[in-house]
C-alpha cells in the first residue's frame, strides 16, 4: 500500500494539520518510506492471536463516586490563549 498525494492531504485534514502544497511531496515520500518499512509485518502469521492493546495485564480498577475535584475554574483557564469571562473563546462556529 502506498500513499498518493490526495491521501496525504486527506490525512492532514483529519489530523487538523495545515499542509502547504510544496510540503505534500516530501511528506508523501517520508510516509511511504515508513509504511514500506512496516510492510514486513505481512510475513507474520497471526492466525488465532489476540491483539494486545495495553502494556498492563490487569483488570480496570474503579473509583468510588465522590466529588473531590473541580471548583478550580481559575486554574483551568489560566493557560487559555483566549477567554471571555470564565469561558474559553474560539473563532465563531457557524452550525
Amino acid at each position: 500500500m502506498s500513499l498518493d498525494a490526495a491521501t496525504v492531504r486527506r490525512i492532514a485534514k483529519l489530523a487538523r494539520i495545515r499542509v502547504e502544497d510544496e510540503e505534500v511531496q516530501t511528506l508523501q515520500g517520508e510516509l511511504n518510506a515508513i509504511l514500506g518499512y512496516v510492510e514486513q509485518l505481512g510475513e507474520v502469521n497471526v492466525d488465532g492471536v489476540e491483539p494486545l492493546s495495553g502494556g498492563a495485564q490487569m483488570a480496570l480498577r474503579q473509583r468510588e463516586d465522590v466529588v473531590n475535584d473541580g471548583g478550580i475554574a481559575g486554574k483551568i483557564l489560566a493557560n487559555a490563549p483566549d477567554r471571555e469571562l470564565n469561558f474559553f473563546a474560539v473563532p465563531k462556529v457557524v452550525e
Binding site: V8, I11, P51
Partner: peptide, 27 residues
C-alpha cells in the same frame, strides 16, 4: 510525520491491516 502515520494506520479501511496486525504481533 508521526501524527500523520498514526492517523493513517487508524483510518477507515487500514485499521486491520496496520494497527490490529501490529497489536497481534505485539502479543
Amino acid at each position: 510525520r508521526r501524527i500523520m502515520i498514526g492517523t493513517y494506520v487508524l483510518s477507515h479501511g487500514y485499521y486491520d491491516a496496520y494497527y490490529l496486525k501490529a497489536q497481534k504481533v505485539r502479543n
